[in-house]
Nucleic acid binder design. Structure first.
Length: 464
DNA sequence: TGAAATGTTGGGGCG
DNA sequence: ACGCCCCAACATTTC
């Protein structure tokens, strides 16, 4: 009756609103909190840096009781359960197709050996199988999805942090985070991360409060401005579950309605939409949703890919974004769209190449958001932008970084270029030492992209 | 959660 | 005073 309970942690490194942890704690049985690093599902390079610090912060918040193990997750869990004689395993649900399959197999395996398994609501506002059209099919268009989800609000109540936890006293070896080599050493490419971010639950909560105080009211008008502190910068905290979507929603929605508040909640629903889409369409991250794009003649120009990755395309807004990403592990959302459009339209590189790069370099890397976002930009997604919508990187720069402050911050070669020319430096006669000319001509690339897109898209409209 | 091309309009310069 | 033209500003359509 007093057999220990193992709580298996993943992307839910928090005390607040953690259903599995709260439920296991109230069961009044000795607790084991376990985190397993499975090489088969290890995150990308930038996210590994975040993971290291997130685990450190979480472990500190529970007095260093976190048990860290490496290996095949199923094998490790079974081993730990046997080691301590646990009677139950709890976790919060995950929704990526591979994770669902993994957890299902783990559950049946543990259940078969007499272990009680309880899964709890995960990192979403609503379970994906509970939001459907009148026909019972998943939503493929955002607006009706938004309406359907809103009709469910308010969502499940958030669960407060558990009180005193009773720890399992069996001696349990934990590996040292140092040995996991999640943070780079020799070339410390994460130096810029350290000045940009503080991972951990406490930092996540502060980011939320700061957002409410400083950025929520003007959010609707400033969220598209990379030169301002217009966004919440909560994405990596959310991606690692340092703060729950339910907590975010409940806290923000408690404020009086307004364009800023509502705009932010809408963005949170985009995240929800992406997760639901991937749940219902498991190929979303690996194949174009729209069949026509299977035939698209993607370029495989490795030099072009490299120039894009390194921020040397010759288009300042694109290069600023790619360098911000490289330096801080994050890129402003508006600039993500511009950079993604440039790769898929101007260079005609397969969106999966860009998606893979983002997954490796973003600290907020999230399979569903990433896949849905890239497919949206490429025009191959469910509720995607019409294929003929091609961002003009010069106009986008002028519109969303009018003074060029964002460009100058990340592209120092252009520091002396006046605002009037900062988004088309090839027209400036001086002060562009070391900055490359545009790798492709906009008008030419646009025309070629339209021709290629038209060739695979039936009809003359790409919209649904 | 576009951009570019094309069409329309209306004020003002000018013969 | 009038009609004509120019063209910026705005609207529509096309990609």
């Amino acid at each position: 009756m007093t057999t220990p309970v193992v709580v298996l942690l993943r992307r839910d490194l928090r005390l607040d609103d953690n259903p599995a942890l709260a439920f296991a704690t109230t069961a009044a049985r000795p607790l084991v909190l376990l985190y397993v690093l499975d090489p088969a599902t290890a995150p990308g390079s930038a996210a590994r840096w975040w993971l290291h610090h997130s685990l450190t912060a979480f472990n500190r918040s529970i007095g260093g009781r976190l048990v860290l193990r490496r290996g095949d997750e199923t094998a490790v869990v079974e081993h730990v359960v046997r080691e301590v004689g646990a009677g139950a395993v709890h976790w919060n649900r995950r929704y990526e197709p591979s994770a669902v399959a993994h957890d299902k197999a783990l559950k049946s395996k543990l259940t078969a050996s007499g272990i009680e398994v309880v899964s709890h609501p995960g990192g979403l506002l609503a379970e994906p199988w509970t939001i459907a059209t009148a026909l019972g099919t998943p939503f493929k268009v955002f607006t009706p999805f938004f309406a359907a989800l809103m009709s469910r609000a308010p969502f499940a109540k958030v669960i407060p942090s558990p009180g005193a936890m009773r720890w399992c006293e069996s001696p349990l070896a934990s590996e040292s985070l140092k040995d996991w080599y999640l943070v780079p050493k020799k070339p410390n490419w994460a130096a810029g991360f350290e000045t940009a971010w503080v991972p951990g639950e406490e930092s996540a909560r502060r980011a939320l409060l700061d957002f409410i105080d400083e950025a929520m009211e003007p959010y609707a008008s400033s969220r598209d401005r990379p030169d301002k502190r217009g966004t919440s910068r909560l994405s990596p905290h959310l991606a690692f579950g340092e703060i729950s979507a339910r907590r975010l929603w409940n806290t923000i929605a408690a404020h009086r309605p307004g364009a800023g508040r509502d705009g932010f909640l809408r963005q949170l629903v985009w995240r929800e939409f992406s997760a639901h889409l991937l749940f219902h369409f498991p190929d979303l991250a690996s194949r174009p949703f729209r069949q026509a794009f299977e035939r698209f003649p993607w370029s495989t120009n490795a030099e072009h890919v490299r120039a894009w990755q390194r921020g040397r395309t010759g288009y300042p807004i694109v290069d600023a974004g790619m360098r911000e990403l490289w330096t801080t592990g994050w890129m402003h959302n508006r600039v993500r769209m511009i950079a993604a459009s440039f790769l898929t339209k101007h260079l005609r590189i397969d969106w999966r190449v860009g998606a893979a790069w983002f997954l490796d370099t973003l600290v907020d890397a999230d399979l569903a958001n990433n896949a849905a976002g890239w497919q949206w930009v490429a025009g191959s997604g469910t509720d995607a932008a019409p294929y003929f919508r091609i961002f003009n990187p010069t106009l986008q720069g002028q519109k969303f970084d009018p003074d060029g402050a964002y460009v100058r911050r990340w592209v120092p070669e252009l520091i002396d270029v006046p605002a009037s020319m900062i988004h088309k430096p090839w027209t400036a006669m001086s002060s562009v030492q070391g900055y490359p000319p545009p790798m492709v001509d906009h008008a030419t690339a646009r025309a070629e992209a339209l021709a290629a897109l038209k060739s695979v898209n039936p009809g003359n409209s790409g919209s649904e």
